[in-house]
Nucleic acid binder design. Structure first.
Lengths: 353, 353
DNA sequence: ATTATTTGCACCATCGATTGTGCACTCAAG
DNA sequence: CTTGAGTGCACAATCGATGGTGCAAATAAT
């Protein structure tokens, strides 16, 4: 790649060209020139020069001076699933509409990586940080607080900063109930046929498990916890859990509560290894929404977490000077099988053809 | 959010604490101290102080001085689909392994937004830029070149910078052929039953259409171009195209070549409006891979674009001092129905449970 | 005409890190 | 004792933008 290119123009270049001082140029170009009582004609002169020479401010210099960067961060566990990627999409739009620059990074649900990533972001003087699905929101809080950075938890709550999360308990109740009721009353689901797969020991999983357990107890019967199989957030671990179950029982449970779309991918991997008939009669409830997942051959009931509302609430809170450290629950939505919902992409105009 | 927090420590603070000059502190902390013949004991002293006071460098200041930031950018059209989100995931891992900081941003396939976004990135002195799926790679090239920023096109080629793209022509040939051959020889697909939906007038779409057309001519017969329906990259437009078709013909074509998973979502939306039976006999080929898409009730043949290889090649090229401005084709992979491939998430360890 | 205001802008320190230059000191060789 | 080489570090300029302060010229008030 050619490394030449005549060094981007600076306010000093424009200062010489215009015969004004650099501070005048700066004031004109950052909009504070009226406040500084710069003549309109001077402003125009400089603006024209800036345009001719394609001036753009060096944002690192500005950020250094202001100790703010105009960057707003979103920390994700992973990019590669619909829940988080649509959150990223919404986040970008929101941040842009506030005139800031969105920065989305992922940290693989690894506490060390999370800390390191946040430290890096802080070193760039990001202005605000949205922490989504962090394994350790409270240590992130400590870092942010020391640096004086406004921050907020999304999806997984912390105890030291305000949090906006999905109402996992209610969502799990709705989902569990929908799974059970999906069965023909003539041949209803039996307690030993309803299992939960996926998740781990995080707040979201615990709440979902609690909702699952409560509804299962109420509508069917809750015997032991054998029907709850946390497998982590990994397709492969989930697949192995299904394989193990199938090995033991010779079939899958008819009713499946799957903790997330990532775990659902584990079921897909299992399915790829087994004949179609193995799934003739199953009903899946998945705590996440994926449009393709909704149209599989068997009934898939999904929960769409309302990341738009979550982000909207988060933006609202982060603007407050001293938001209460509390958890805000956003109700998710039950999505019946074969439903194609609109997503953030729908607000993008796609002209031409 | 509390705005206090005792201002992060700087080299000047450590300079006072250690009794050394700021330049010595700087040298010690950025690793150049041997070159500057600093005593080992001095280095240790300063390193300990740095640790005690949780010093981290202000990267904006460093970037300003060096006119490099340590940031590497990836510009995407959108986050919210599996192709691009998995590209983002792979990109992050690669950039991190080079000791840099990944920045992923999307620009909605809007040329203006692309330009504005790239200008912002340049203003932060990003070191390198990967431009994926840009509508207007050549104007982006102009910007980058003026700023002396190494850059490379991915997914959609430009004429002024090296490009790494998927071999859309070959991929489309494979996909078209696989669709046709999926049908029972006893009741083969007829020319008027094979349609292409989606895409627009970009390089990828044109190549895919060319591949589609060539194979269709060779194996069936290519009459008019009525069987090619570019609908843009929008689920809704695609849905409307299907509705219109259905309105006219009373059914869908039995063989469908769908240009991308985004367009495939348009088919889902159509499906949500119509009874199951409408799709009893269709075969879909989709130029994109989505694990859930692969397991739908009808056969879905997919193309997985090898974004890992594309990125690997792109990283290789961008390191070269003067890479040739040519297009590198990366062969994609045909994915048979009901296949669950591994993705970038599989390389993430998910401990605990 | 003289003093008081207002207008228009230049000057300079500052943000934090980097780096070329050079000075003072130690130690050994002559 | 002088010279030369090497050691260890400090100084100061620099990256580009910002904003407080102050000063001269233009205009208004008396």
């Amino acid at each position: 790649m050619k490394q030449q290119g005549k060094k981007k123009a600076t306010i000093y270049d424009l200062s010489i060209l215009s015969g004004c001082s650099a501070s005048t140029v700066s004031a004109v170009l950052n909009g504070t020139w009226r406040k500084r009582r710069i003549k309109e004609s001077t402003a125009e002169l400089i603006q024209n020069l800036a345009e001719q020479h394609q001036y753009t401010a060096n944002l690192q210099a500005r950020g250094l001076r202001n100790s703010r960067s105009g960057l707003v961060g979103l920390l994700l566990p992973v990019h590669d699933n619909r829940y988080f990627s649509s959150m990223a999409q919404t986040f970008e739009a929101q941040v842009r509409s506030h005139g800031k620059c969105p920065v989305v990074v992922s940290a693989s649900r690894d506490p060390r990586e999370e800390i390191a990533t946040v430290e890096t972001l802080i070193s760039y003087s990001i202005d605000e940080l949205f922490v989504a699905g962090a394994t350790d929101p409270d240590s992130i809080h400590t870092l942010c607080e020391a640096a004086g950075i406004r921050h907020i938890n999304i999806d997984l709550p912390g105890t030291k900063a305000p949090s906006v999360i999905s109402d996992n308990y209610q969502g799990a109740r709705m989902l569990t109930e929908a799974i059970i009721q999906r069965f023909d009353p003539a041949d209803p689901l039996k307690p030993e046929e309803l299992f939960l797969f996926g998740g781990r020991n995080d707040h979201a999983s615990r709440e979902r498990i609690r909702g699952f357990r409560d509804i299962k107890s109420a509508l069917l019967r809750m015997d032991t916890d054998a029907c709850i199989q946390p497998t982590g957030y990994s397709p492969n671990m989930t697949q192995k859990a299904f394989e193990a179950f199938y090995e033991r029982e010779g079939k899958l449970p008819r009713g499946l509560f799957i903790n997330s779309s990532i775990n659902f991918e584990g079921l897909l991997r299992f399915m790829a290894q087994h004949p179609h008939e193995t799934f003739a009669d199953i009903v899946v409830g998945c705590y996440d929404y994926d449009p393709f997942g909704s149209f599989l051959a068997f009934p898939v009931i999904m929960i769409r977490q309302d990341s738009e509302s979550m982000l909207a609430k988060a933006f609202e809170l982060i603007e407050e000077s001293r938001p209460a450290v509390k958890i805000h629950l956003i109700p998710p939505e039950l999505v019946h099988p074969r439903t194609a919902l609109n997503g953030p992409l729908d607000s993008i105009r796609d002209v031409d053809a």
